[in-house]
């Protein structure tokens, strides 16, 4: 069961002249929640966005090294980015539903992939909303605009949207940073539940959150990977002094 899903090897990332990620090497296992922590500006979001090549959209960026997902280098020259992003879904820091109905949001990924059968579409939308623990709250108002939902509901809709196209890896970029404690708790519960079927990588600035939900924790600082290991060990017996200082809140 525990296989390597994502393998990062000597990975460097440059933005213009600045090097944002330095020599990162890391294995990410299937069916685990891996959380990435570190002070703001340490490159954790950048790293996450390298895993589905969202950084391609930013002009004047450059990468070195390899990232293998299921053994395929995703920075290979003629790799199909569109296929990659179907396999590696993403949930953003701020809930970003499209200004469409709840149904259309959840169906978006399916529709652009050419699914036209209405019954099948409805079925899959329902399934993904159920998987995102949102179905019960929205089943009677699927045609409402997504902006009418609360922040927490919007974020779970974004999760549903990502789940609908059946990815294998889900990247989450501080998904709870804009949510209140109750919505956050619901989302965390959802994440723990989802790891049974997906590989989850989550960036968070909230140490308790990392401790609560992740199996593995990765600590980044100034673009370098300082330490990574089982969450229980990192939080109780960190190997390095900076890690300890960071997780005990002495800086950040």
């Amino acid at each position: 069961m525990d296989q390597i899903k994502v393998q990062v090897k000597d990975f460097n990332f440059f933005y213009g002249q600045a090097q944002c990620l330095k020599n990162i090497s890391l294995d990410i296992m299937t069916h685990e929640v891996t959380s990435i922590i570190g002070p703001s500006g340490c490159g954790k979001s950048t790293f996450l966005r390298c895993l589905n090549r969202m950084n391609d959209l930013i002009i004047s960026t450059r990468t070195e090294g390899t990232i293998l997902i299921d053994g395929t280098n995703i920075y290979e020259k003629d790799l199909d980015v569109v296929k990659l992003r179907k396999k590696v879904g993403m949930v953003f820091q701020k809930p970003n539903p499209f200004p469409k109905s709840i149904f259309e949001n959840a169906a978006y990924g399916l529709k652009i992939n050419g699914l036209k059968d209405k019954n099948l579409l409805a079925e899959k939308v329902e399934q993904s909303l159920k998987n995102a623990a949102l179905w019960g709250e929205v089943k009677d108002r699927l045609n409402d605009n997504a902006f009418k939902l609360s922040g927490g509901q919007q974020q779970r809709l974004c999760v549903a949207r990502a789940l609908a196209i059946e990815p294998e890896v889900i990247l989450m970029d501080e998904p709870a940073s804009a949510l209140d404690p109750i919505a956050t708790a619901k989302l965390e519960e959802l994440i723990v539940h989802l790891k049974e079927r997906y590989t989850i990588v989550i960036v968070t600035h909230n140490m308790q959150q990392a401790a609560r939900i992740s199996d593995v924790t990765v600590f980044l600082m100034q673009g370098e990977l300082v330490e990574h290991g089982k969450t229980s060990e990192i939080f109780t017996r960190p190997m390095k002094k900076v890690t300890e200082e960071y997780i005990t809140g002495r800086f950040g």
């Binding site: 969202m54 569109v82 992003r85 179907k86 953003f92 970003n96 978006y108 990924g109 949207r161």
Partner: peptide
């Protein structure tokens, strides 16, 4: 970004 991340 939202739609590209969904494989559009």
């Amino acid at each position: 970004e939202g739609s590209l991340a969904l494989g559009a």
